[in-house]
Write a protein that binds this DNA or RNA. Structure first.
Lengths: 183, 183, 183, 183
DNA sequence: AATGAATGAGGATTCATTCAT
DNA sequence: TATGAATGAATCCTCATTCAT
């Protein structure tokens, strides 16, 4: 029988996860100490360990959360979902580009994180392929084209982290023009 | 006299740098201990520190080296330089992709590495813009287009790390077709 | 809850400081490793660093503590405070002499420790000058005389460290006789 | 059969010793690395080790040298030798006060250095006692009085290191007045 | 005689994690 | 439930010393 409500438990978990994500985005997984996270979220070290068995487990939880956000964004079957995704990267209130780079780096080493990340991309691929099917001229295989579209998305993340004044509008317009030439 | 030839010194430096790059690509900067590098390159810890004042300095040296390789590849003013760059990512003997992801992650935190990385992209941009100028139809600004091209390059790196069976040929063919539709 | 009483915290701090002082007195600051201190005080290395941010900070804390002991001894406005100070150096339960020599050596290098040590001497000077004022015959400036008195104190420390059989009584009697000839 | 003249050998040895003394006076024995000394004296590390088997041996050599300087100063049987010794401490071209503090600190730990230092003081004592014998009023034992004189000398060294503007003249005049009151 | 590249044990410090309260 | 004091292995780095040239 739990002594506190499940809502409280979930809120605590989210509070810790948000603090961790903020730290990780700022300093990376390995330059962030558990003490940093403890300070940021305002609860004790002991309590953090009641929600996450280890730092690695926290990293995986964050990767998982980030993944589900992305997929959710695409699962809305809007025609313009893809371009909207690109636009979102340019919004200042979406600081997860930096987190994405950390996740990608960690995916090199950790099979679990690599699987999650790859699964993320696969889900995006499926969603986009479904949208494009039938709309492509002869000679265009949807699969590699979707890979290119996702690559554009990933590269935009990188470039936005490096140059916060990047002209997101011009970028998206160019991508839109490219797509228009095909469809 | 152990005063040794400059060639020897350079070789030693490269030997250490190569070992470090291999470790970093495998495990990331922070999961790689100096002892790992020492083991990999077969010289003593003390000697490593005669060539690099700190682990951070080694990381910067590796980023710098990787940067100059990329720029060199593009400075060859071949018409197909860009597509060739994409193709190279697919070659198994080029383990740079994993290193690139580590560098990107580190660029979030380190202004020096961010500057180097950004400088790398800027150099690529300049080279590509020079190649495209005049060849574009009205309404196409070369700058955002080149940004998209570089994004494709960056995203391909990410996807290749995650899926070594990715069909590089199909990917490059699709990119070529896209470019052909514009020019 | 391990939130622990302030008394406990202070005791821990003192326990570490005492262990460190013992090590330093025996082997000097630089021949004493943090591991030596850790062994001597019976707590873990990590805990030591919760109380002192670095070895240097520990050294400064010890200098500061030693300083306040001296000043306290003199602030008691006894007529004989000075001679009592000299006598104390001869007591075997006062192992401070060796520590004093370490502090003096370190004061050469560290402006902070030099300032502390000098402040110590200045405080002694002020206290002694206040006691002597008015009691000196014409032609005797209290300031240099007090400097000589302090020099005697310092030199006695040195000689006591070198010769534990030094006849402290005879030394103090001679100093008393000298002072008597002036006053 | 030596390949170079003995004069050359001696000069080299002295060159190294002087460089070491300068470093030690500045930073202390333990904060001075052999590389520091190598840099300061301008010969190679290997060569230093042909003259001194270890850093500790160098320290002992320096202590011995410093010791013989002191004794030499006193062995001149001048009536005023003692006051002259005090005056010398105030001269800016005599930077060994700082070295003396290092030696004293090291004497706590090293029986060899302690023996040398104590021997130094003993030699001073013998010289001074010889000078005072017969000149003292009844009730004055020469031995403790000489100990006090040496203590004054030692304390002056300490205070001069801490305060380079210390009024050496006033100090010496006070000591002279004290002595005059007895003799 | 002289060099300085090379060694590797040892040093200070950090940090993920535990557990008594 | 929640705390934060306590742990100690692991990390980065230094430095006295050696030895091939």
């Amino acid at each position: 029988m739990p002594r506190v409500s499940e809502a409280h438990l979930n809120a605590r978990r989210q509070q810790i996860l948000d603090a961790a994500a903020a730290c990780f985005a700022r300093e990376g997984f390995h330059r962030t100490s558990m003490q940093d996270i403890v300070r940021e979220c305002g609860v004790s070290a002991g309590l953090v360990y009641r929600y996450f068995a280890s730092k690695d487990e926290m990293i995986e939880a964050i990767v998982g959360e980030w993944h589900s956000h992305r997929v959710a964004a695409l699962s809305v079957p809007l025609d313009r979902a893809y371009l909207e995704l690109l636009r979102e990267i340019g919004r200042p209130e979406a600081p997860d580009g930096r987190l994405a780079l950390q996740v990608w780096a960690e995916s090199v080493r950790s099979p679990e994180i690599r699987a999650l990340s790859r699964g993320n991309v696969d889900a995006m691929r499926d969603a986009l392929v479904a949208q494009l099917e039938g709309a492509l001229p002869a000679g265009f295989d949807p699969d590699p084209l979707v890979r290119v579209m996702i690559a554009i998305y990933q590269g935009l993340i990188v470039q936005t982290v490096w140059d916060e004044n990047l002209d997101n509008d011009a970028f998206v317009r160019t991508v839109a023009a490219l797509i228009a030439r095909i469809l």
